[in-house]
Design a protein around this nucleic acid. Structure first.
Length: 570
DNA sequence: GCCGTTTTCGGCCCGACTGTTTTCAGTCG
């Protein structure tokens, strides 16, 4: 069983228990466990199956949760979860997604009006049955109907890239207002998570009227959902929601730290404050009534005896351990990148020639690129067979000879076929400077077969790297089922590199897997997979993901010159 | 439900805004 499935079971159980009125701290225990398991680089199933180990060795897993995990892994189901599902229909859980609808209200609607589906809910609201309930009223009823009307179109989390474009546009407008002193985007956008659920914008100003009015009138804003003295919530035309917070300048650092999150990270920071007799909120760090810090984030962290922690690391994973030991990584920057080793041309499904891609790369100060068109299995892209590939390579050599200032390498993105063979023969692969092996098809095969395929590629002496290792498309399809730790160990043993594919819908390896790869000393390559001259733009997103993984310049092989890089190849 | 240099019970982060109340519960981040 995949870690994500175990995490999901605990999250679902927490939702159900919450509607059932369970103790809030019990829910937190389930949700903490869920998050910890989702972030775990090794397979929980492997831990359960190892006689010398137990899930209870992990933080936040006690006797009870360890038993539940074992049951889940061994039987595939969790009796407590099934019982709760029988007790509370799925439609009641769905109601939690409506804005303003939480577990308490959902439970009342279920128990008092026997509402079990969103359709029931709509009818009850239309028939004005809801306003009669205690704690509900006319406005609640109207907001339920509005929420239902919006439920279909609101997309949930969006790609970081899409969120950033909108946040940048609003940032640009608000930053020009006379009353705005400082402005920053916070939240998961600032932490560079691969998807963003909503936007957080922080402003320091003496008065919130002007920025709030300006936001309400912004062309991207559809509706103001709430507005108070310091906080305004709006819905953008895209469906994304955004919070604007306005605080005084002396609170800027505390507010930025607070609104950047993550929630789990902040809980640890505030607990550290408590231990030191301090209280941290968005206005500052306080000893009794006296503010002792708050103007900068550095001050806030210093108050709890920590150095400033880069936002990308603030997930309550390993950042506190690093910070305490003065061992925070110096995270990689986009300027560190010297080469791009994954891209396509008109030979397959790209839109630009070899020369055009090289020129575009040179413009971006890259010193070397590898042209890695598809192999023949990818028929949709008119993938290359041995003959066409050799002709393509000849062309690459020719363009390389005619081009100065950038090295153009002969590469191939070679499919790992469903039967665990490679799409091109060894003698062809042997002629390449750079071979990316990838899974494109048969991603739903059982784990055993996926492992067999990946190990075939890893053991092949001509394969340089595994490209987009899981094959996931964020929000669209899960990756192939695999024990990542096992695959990474094999890659480390055979000197095979691992890719972070920078495309915003892939970002594969993800942050957790990339951190695990680093721990094993595997050289990581951040690649754009560009299919056009503009395709290099996505590099930034690969860098963000690498930073979230705690990667430094030295961990990423394509920060080196090609001469140095070659020495890392087996 | 987890955890412990306050260790097997009693804690567990903190505040803004809304709607429904008439002092606060619920929701949200």
């Amino acid at each position: 069983m995949q870690n994500s499935e175990i995490a999901r079971a605990f999250d679902d159980l927490a939702d159900l228990l919450e509607i059932d009125g369970a103790n809030a701290f019990r829910l937190r225990a389930y949700r903490n466990a869920s998050r910890m398991i989702a972030d775990l680089p090794e397979s929980m199933t492997a831990i359960v199956e190892d006689a010398d180990r137990s899930p209870s060795e992990l933080p936040g897993i006690g006797k009870d949760l360890a038993e539940k995990i074992t049951t889940l892994v061994e039987t595939g189901t969790l009796p407590q979860l099934d019982e709760m599902r029988d007790k509370i229909p799925p439609g009641v859980v769905e109601m939690l997604r409506l804005p303003g609808m939480g577990p308490k209200k959902a439970a009342i609607l279920f128990h008092e009006l026997s509402i079990t589906t969103l359709e029931d809910l709509k009818q009850a609201a239309e028939q004005e049955q809801i306003r009669a309930l205690k704690g509900f009223g006319k406005k609640t009823e109207e907001s339920i109907l509005e929420g239902l009307a919006h439920a279909q179109q609101s997309a949930g989390r969006v790609f970081l890239a899409d969120a950033k474009i909108q946040a940048d546009a609003i940032f640009e407008s608000l930053s020009q207002l006379p009353s705005v002193q400082q402005i920053a985007a916070a939240g998961s956008l600032r932490r560079r998570r691969e998807t963003v659920g909503d936007l957080d914008m922080l402003i320091t100003a003496d008065d919130s009227t002007e920025p709030m009015d300006a936001l309400a009138d912004h062309e991207l804003v559809e509706k103001v959902l709430a507005r108070g003295e310091t906080k305004q919530r709006v819905r953008l035309r895209s469906g994304l929601e955004m919070d604007l917070r306005v605080v005084p300048a002396e609170s800027y650092g505390a507010a930025l730290q607070y609104f950047t999150g993550s929630k789990a990270h902040n809980i640890v920071v505030r607990r550290r404050a408590q231990e030191r007799g301090l209280k941290i909120n968005e206005y500052g760090v306080f000893r009794d009534e006296d503010a002792v810090a708050g103007q900068t984030e550095e001050e806030v962290y210093a108050a709890v005896d920590l150095p400033w922690i880069p936002p990308e690391l603030r997930e309550d994973r390993r950042e506190f351990e690093w910070a305490e030991n003065n061992a925070l990584p110096t995270l990689i920057e986009i300027e560190d990148i010297r080469g791009d080793l994954h891209m396509h041309t008109t030979a397959t499904d790209g839109t630009a020639s070899i020369a055009d891609m090289a020129a575009a790369a040179k413009k971006r100060k890259l010193k070397y690129i590898a042209i890695t068109d598809h192999s023949k299995r990818v028929t949709m892209a008119q993938g290359l067979d041995a003959k066409r590939l050799r002709a393509h390579w000849k062309e690459i050599d020719k363009v390389n000879a005619e081009t100065s200032g950038i090295e153009i390498l002969k590469g191939i993105e070679c499919d790992i076929l469903e039967d665990a063979t490679l799409d091109l023969p060894d003698d062809v692969l042997a002629e390449a400077d750079w071979v990316i092996a990838v899974l494109h098809y048969g991603l739903k095969q059982p784990q055993d077969q996926i492992h067999k395929r990946l190990l075939t590629a890893i053991k092949n002496p001509h394969v340089s790297i595994i490209g987009h290792p899981t094959g996931r498309l964020i929000g669209k399809r899960p990756g192939a089922e695999m024990n990542m730790q096992e695959i990474l160990k094999a890659a480390a043993d055979h000197g095979v590199m691992m890719e972070i594919n920078a495309h915003p819908s892939r970002l594969d390896l993800d942050d957790v897997a990339a951190a695990a790869a680093k721990d094993l000393g595997i050289p990581i390559v951040i690649s754009t997979d560009a299919h056009a001259t503009t395709g290099f733009d996505v590099l930034q997103y690969g860098i963000y993901q690498a930073r979230r993984a705690g990667l430094e310049k030295k961990d990423v092989a394509n920060t080196k010159t090609w001469g140095q890089f070659k020495k890392l190849l087996r």
